[in-house]
Design a protein around this nucleic acid. Sequence first.
RNA 1: GCCGCUGUGGCUUAGAGGCAUAGCGAUUCCUUGGUAAGGAAUAGGUCGAGGGUUCAAUUCCCUCCAGCGGCUCCA
Length: 624
Amino acid sequence: MKLLLIHSDFIEYEVKDKAIKQPEETTIKKGRLDEALTAFTAVEKIDEKSPSQSVKQTADEIIKTAEQLKVKNIMLYPYAHLSSNLASPKKAQEILIEIEYELKQNNYNVKRSPFGWYKSFKISCKGHPLSELSREIVPVDEESESLKKERKLSSYWNILTEDGQLLDIGKFNFEGHENLRKFSFYEKEKSRAVKQEPAHVKLMQKLEIADYEPASDGGNMRFYPKGRFIKKLIEEYVTKRVVEYGGLEVETPIMYDMDHPTLSKYLQRFPARQYQVESDKRNFFLRFAACFGQFLMAHDATISYKNLPLKIYELTRYSFRREQSGELTGLRRLRAFTMPDVHAMVSDLEMAMSEFKVRFDLCLSVLNDIGIENDDIEMALRTTRDFYEKNKNFLIDLVKKFKKPILIEMWDERIFYFILKFEFNFVDMSDKASALSTDQIDIENGERYDIKFTDKNGTQNHPLILHCSPSGAIERVIYALLEKEAMKMNKGQKPMLPLWLSPTHIRFIPVDNKFIKDCEEYVNVLKNISELYHIRSDIDDREESVSRKIRDAEKEWIPVIIVIGEKEKTGKKFTPRFRAVSIGDSNKSYSINELFELIKSQIKGFPQATSPLPTYLSKRPKFK
RNA sequence: GCCGCUGUGGCUUAGAGGCAUAGCGAUUCCUUGGUAAGGAAUAGGUCGAGGGUUCAAUUCCCUCCAGCGGCUCCA
């Protein structure tokens, strides 16, 4: 529904010719209203999907404005030209009549100009700031509203311990489980102790990782070379792990037809959350997950029980969710994000559960390897009471794998499409919790998308589907890594990115220009020593003092800093500044080969890439 | 989306109804260096955008945009 509201001294119209085949029958050819709020309206396709919601929301919006302006007269004026995606005339007329009725119920003096006619009209707009307003109304589906209410009413929050005790949140002793306490209360009470801006925002800018892009929509970030590099490596790593697990990597479109029979039903539940794209006469929405493409692909595939579990994987760049503007922050919550998404089609619940376990291990291992350890995350399970009772030991086994108590939310009845879901949540310095890895057992969409596999007996069945993101959104992983380092800084420790993600491993600092040549030689030795492992080294060739260059390198979180002068040149040994004792010993000397081995041993198994920036610092622009 | 706060060169910031501050960074020059800032000069501004009040607005008022905090939300 599109609305154009005009606070007018008067509005008058006169009916001329038919605009559509069967316009509204009317005997009144002229109408006028003084001191009125004129509401030009265009009923749109989307309003047809939940007309009663549309009526209610539109009436509410008009009433709100009328109250502000203190007017009692309302002219409801159909004006098709406000939208290029109109509802059918019949529906539109019905909706307008309903709105008129609704407004009259609220004691407004309402006139409605007849539908489907060309009319001449005169209007006098008052011209003050509030006198001209346009509004777009997207009806919120009533069913989903009620579902949400129901969910809130009947969900139970508990803590499940490793030894299988199920305790009420209020009764659990959170001593030694500070983050679980924060996470639990964040989830249940939405309460927050600390109120400050997230620490990673400054860091992502200072380190030239990512930044806001004012020329785009909110939550669509720009990534600088270093950020793109880090993001790419994480993407590659997650993909590698999923492919090893057996995921078949695919690529699917980012936009889908809103009127596609299978998708539209699913979409109706969340109508306000997508970006929409128009192309000729069709309307598309930008995907908010990888499900659509993969399910449609699976729908057309011939699948035998022998193929199960069938794992399909895509790294979506991007998935889009039009989160409310007030909810967007830094890299934590975005409108465009990169999501690894691996589905597994399984034959039955038994296979689903055994696969769930495999993927649980995968998620935990992926996060750990990226640099987010068990101590950094809290686990949540969400399920039905029934599933819990029947599979208690299965769930407790998961808690044992996680090695600390978890939050469990239960419903009396299944409300969503899944019966079991787990999440690993990161709790940041502001006590906000964000989900990283997740997996769920979906028992609805196999049928909804009509995906079929043939079983031993030759009969066709719908599979159950597991939805998993082993790491969560890649941007959010970066957020978590940065927040983790910010916490370290708070404790007076040096922050650092994991070695495999550092854009520069070794910074060479010549004490004099004449040693630049030697630095080049070392960089080349490191480059050529192996084709498999890339040690990323660079040279600070700027006209600055040595201590200045060291300071800048430290500010850039460079893991290994080496000053090159006469001593190094002749001795062929270096005494680097290691950012952490875990990398190396700053009191010892290393040859170039020893350095290579040292770093190699720590980046083995991770994606390898050469530096994203010029070797010489003098060649690098400052992006921030 | 709602309520509140904020918006001054690339960055951090001072200021106030009447010539717009400084530091960092950049550029040029000097310095030719040994483990967290060597020195000097120069350039760089529609004071977030649009409208209004005023002789005069970056400053006051309104609208919009963006960021932050809270609410809501997170399929």
